[in-house]
Design a protein around this nucleic acid. Structure first.
Lengths: 345, 345
DNA sequence: TTGAAAGCGCTAACAA
DNA sequence: TTGTTAGCGCTTTCAA
């Protein structure tokens, strides 16, 4: 070795422990990993030596030897999006419970970056990958080529060779539309994203289907990106288009935030003039004005299922579809936004 | 080795490349890392072999050999907080530019978890740590003990032995208060967090100082946690306390979100009845209602400085204090919130 | 119950 | 310019 040890006292290694305890290095391994029977006395001696030296096993060496890094990779479109941030945190938690680490990477909304990050994770030797992709059919070749178990999280389409876990968007849209209809609103519009490719988004399909089933009128449909700016643009279109329906199903919370702003700017009241239910259930929906009623994805459960699929999946590919739940706040009209006393002012 | 190779064809290793190219393994290293002169012909042959086999160096082995993982660790209080999410993304970017990877960990607001995550990062052999702690004086022992370079990000107090990079909060508060005063408002209150320990928060000190210097009245001061719920509680107090000042400096965007909600519920208009400037500059401030005027931290710069301090710092400990900038939106009264046409309705 | 030793894939000093 | 080789710290087989 030709490198100076790190500043500070060099970390103790397994052989130091072995020497101090008067055993072979193998025994230290047995004690540390509990993989073999070691006599109580020896165990005690080894434990003591470990404590004395403050020994911590070198996980890099372990990873090299094992051919497994005990790390999971996760790539997100953008951790700055509260919904993905929740997902990331949940995955981290589910992973930590199993003694693994997550290596998180942001694709920043770029497919090219997504691929680069993916390859990077492969190089780092992650044992599995949780991929939240913005595209329906991500490029899985680097993963498949390396034989790395992969699960597509927050995904609703079928993809060959990998497991997916997603929300039942059809059911989510049904929940939203039925709720809005339950408020007696009879024309229900849709604000939805643009990046869904050529496959019909289940949110759109279900919105259309449910509106028809309930015998309500189909309001306008506006397609804009899944961002607050997209939502703002949608709101502006709706307002200037002069065809503002009394109810709107918005396919993401962030869009709803932007929509709300456009509506406010135009002096349109929510929920009095337009009632809104959105979809995601991210934190920021609770502190918009008015607070958003939203169909919430079961984020923790999604994460747990995804991690389990990766670890226990053992090559099986399954499609997990989880049910969302409606969280009522003020934007749909369920709860009065202002306090009674305030309204009386 | 006693383990089956991963499913799929086993990855090519350096010796395969060497064999195919008809050179020694050392030469492959030289070519891959560009550490030594290799003749053009040999280089070409090696490159070809690499492409042919789809060879990718094993970073775990490299890390073990080098004694450096080429990973940086980052621990955050909560990546679900948009401000920290921005910081995390910026750090990831600054790190990627240098060919390194970030291992991110969430402390979930718990000091105990923070320490556990820190130790975990040490075990993983990270070459440096970016620590965003919620406490003023975090436990750096695991880091110092292992001789791992550390920088405290988003920190404003002096801590022995490590570099810090933070925002000039005094200046931030000055900017906010002066701006509010510039709108002709003469009593300026403060909403601030509770978890600052026994040291006087510079935001509070500067608010007090600036208000006095400008000859304005000091409005009420409310202390609640740095969360939307804290902000909501603060707003409720202010409203029911009956001492609502015409201007409020709020020490974090998330608090401001909650505050806004409490104000809305009480039918109080922003900025007409109360003008608000907050501090952070996170994304969600742009889509609240009304959009928040906020003193924005130079997040990208903070991240770059932090990463540079870690990598080029070479044991030096410096204190970097960066300047925030005021971003005016509607909550302070600079911009009319509603469109003129809407106001005319 | 314990130990000796091979070797994970890579780097780089040293020799040729 | 290229090759030989000794490890990095760990796990685990096989033998004692």
């Amino acid at each position: 070795m030709d490198r100076a040890p790190r500043s500070g006292r060099p970390a103790a290694k397994r052989s130091d422990v072995a020497q101090l305890a008067g055993v072979s290095t193998a025994v230290v391994s047995y004690v540390v990993n509990g993989t073999k029977n070691v006599s109580p006395e020896t165990t005690a001696r080894v434990r003591e030596a470990i404590d004395l030296l403050g020994y911590r096993p070198n996980r890099t060496a372990r990873a090299l030897r094992l051919g497994a890094s005990e790390m999971l990779g996760m790539v997100l479109p953008d951790a700055t999006n509260p919904y993905f941030a929740m997902l990331a945190r949940a995955v981290e938690e589910a992973t930590a419970e199993r003694g693994l680490t997550v290596l998180t990477a942001n694709a920043n909304g770029s497919l090219e970056t997504e691929n680069r990050r993916l390859e990077h994770l492969v190089d780092r030797g992650v044992d599995g990958v949780v991929l939240c992709s913005t595209v329906l059919d991500p490029d899985l070749r680097p993963l498949v080529g390396a034989g790395i178990p992969t699960v597509l999280l927050n995904h609703w389409a079928d993809v060959a060779g990998v497991s997916t876990v997603g929300v039942d968007l059809w059911e989510g849209a049904r929940l939203a539309v039925e709720h809005l209809a339950g408020h007696g609103l009879d024309r229900i519009g849709l604000v939805i994203g643009t990046n869904v490719g050529h496959v019909l988004d289940p949110r759109e399909a279900s919105w259309r289907h449910t509106v028809a089933r309930l015998g309500r009128g189909e309001g306008p449909i506006v397609r804009e990106p899944f961002t607050p700016w997209g939502g703002y643009a949608a709101g502006t279109k709706l307002v200037t288009g002069g065809d503002l329906p009394p109810a709107l199903f918005v396919s993401s919370d962030r869009q709803a935030l932007g929509l709300l702003r456009a509506l406010h700017e135009a002096g349109i009241r929510v929920p009095e003039d337009v009632a809104i239910v959105s979809l995601d259930g991210s934190d920021d929906a609770a502190f918009s004005w008015p607070p958003l009623s939203t169909v919430a994805a079961p984020v923790e459960e999604m994460a747990r299922v995804a991690v389990a699929a990766l670890i226990e999946g053992a090559g099986a590919t399954a499609r997990h579809v989880l049910l969302p739940t409606l969280v009522c706040r003020a934007s749909c009209g369920c709860t009065p936004a202002r306090r009674a006393t305030a309204a009386a002012r």
